[in-house]
């Protein structure tokens, strides 16, 4: 019987920590990123970010390194290096940052938020 209140406490704490991670301004930016995702990414990577096995890769990752983030920025901006891979997506610098932050902080993904100052010259418009 004592396990139920403890589980509820853990769940409440998890929800609180998850909600408290971002300021209202950051949440607004992440929401814009969600709209960019729906417009440009959801067709292949899916509403759950888990892609389509054998066709489109998952965006769910246990952790994000700077290399992974840079790779994501490069692929969105310039397209995949493989012939059948993803095509470049026409996004403003704002939208690029917003969608990468959304991808890396949704569906259980967690990563530090990036800003336009993190974009390399080749990743800017």
């Amino acid at each position: 019987m004592r396990q139920i209140p403890y589980a509820l406490l853990c769940l409440s704490l998890a929800v609180f920590v998850s909600c408290a991670r971002f300021t209202p301004e950051e949440k607004a930016e992440l929401h814009k990123g969600e709209e960019v995702y729906i417009t440009h990414c959801i067709s292949c990577h899916g509403p759950g970010g888990d892609g389509l096995s054998g066709a489109y890769p998952t965006l769910l990752k246990p952790q994000f390194s700077t290399d992974i983030t840079n790779n994501t920025l490069n692929i969105i901006r310039h397209g995949s290096s493989t012939a059948d891979g993803m095509k470049a997506v026409s996004l403003s610098d704002d939208e690029l940052v917003q969608v990468v932050n959304y991808i890396q902080n949704h569906w259980g993904n967690e990563a530090p938020l990036i800003s336009q100052s993190d974009l390399k010259p080749s990743q800017k418009l």
Binding site: I42, S43, P47, L52, A55
Partner: peptide, 10 residues
């Protein structure tokens, strides 16, 4: 309910 491009959805 989500807008999806049918040309690329197997």
């Amino acid at each position: 309910g989500m807008p999806i491009r049918a040309c690329c959805f197997p």
